[in-house]
């Protein structure tokens, strides 16, 4: 059985701190979210995941770039890199890095445990396609243009739950972040050349090998539910899951 082999002590050193579990949902308005999926080499499969999680075959990452006109912290643009994984038998994405373009970085860290650094996230969505770029103090760490938008049904795109590693009142835990939206528009696009600097996201092993798909979702609202479950990062989900609601 494949399980993550990442050094938890090392991961814990860089994990953000969550002072308490927020009981309120976080609601974003007028949201556009681009999701890109790419296969990874097997060398990055187990090495980037904590021992509680199982990798997928093939290894894959998803980049989600989300822009909201309104959030509790004003206008918001964020980009996250997640590794496709399994918590128990459930499909999840483990967050390796996140870049947020405003003071929302602190809010997303304190409420949902995103390992957010402040940077510049740009996302353009038009009739001809979409493009995004992510800049931090290290320079451009991701960019992509996708073309040929193809309308899809509201249920044709899948967003898996996110797991963020953070120091919580219970100790170092994987936070299960669940979000929900009712899309008004869904498109599948053809991704072009991806610029991606794994080191800029904190993990140089991440080298996207094959771009699988790209999609855009437009939604009037996007809600992050309060954290309900956390998992011990060194124990499989069947025994290591704790309820916090």
């Amino acid at each position: 059985m494949l399980v993550g082999t990442a050094d938890l002590e090392l991961l814990g050193r860089h994990a953000p701190r969550l002072p308490e579990f927020n009981a309120e949902p976080l609601v974003l308005d007028e949201v556009v979210c681009l999701q890109l999926t790419a296969e990874l080499p097997n060398s990055a499969r187990e090495a980037v995941l904590p021992p509680a999680l199982h990798p997928t075959v093939p290894a894959a990452l998803s980049i989600q770039v989300l822009k909201a006109a309104r959030s509790p912290w004003g206008e918001l643009a964020m980009a996250t890199v997640r590794i496709a994984c399994r918590s128990g038998a459930r499909a999840r994405g483990y967050t390796v890095g996140a870049v947020v373009n405003s003071q929302a970085a602190e809010g997303l860290t304190m409420n949902l445990g995103y390992p957010a650094q402040v940077g510049e996230v740009r996302l353009r969505h038009g009739y001809d396609g979409a493009e995004f770029s992510v800049h931090t103090k290290q320079g451009m760490i991701a960019a992509l243009a996708a073309v040929d938008p193809e309308p899809m049904g509201q249920n044709d795109v899948q967003f898996t739950g996110t797991l963020n590693l953070a120091h919580t009142p219970l100790g170092l835990r994987l936070l299960q972040v669940e979000s929900d939206c009712a899309p008004s528009q869904v498109e599948r696009l053809t991704p072009g050349m991806l610029t991606f600097d794994g080191a800029g996201w904190g993990q140089s092993l991440l080298v996207p090998k094959l771009l699988v798909s790209c999609s855009i979702v437009v939604a009037p609202q996007w809600a992050f539910a309060p954290i309900r479950f956390v998992c011990k990062p060194d124990e499989l989900a069947f025994t290591g899951t704790e309820s916090v609601s």
Binding site: M1, L2, T37, H54, P55, T56, V57, P58, A60, A84, R86, G88, A89, R90, A91, M152, G153, D156, V157, Q158, T160, V186, R188, V212, S213, S215
Partner: peptide, 16 residues
């Protein structure tokens, strides 16, 4: 669990 290691089509590729 072993079965779930597979990358589901819907998870990787938006499709009807």
């Amino acid at each position: 669990i072993a079965n779930s290691h597979l990358l589901w089509t819907r998870e990787a590729y938006p499709t009807r």
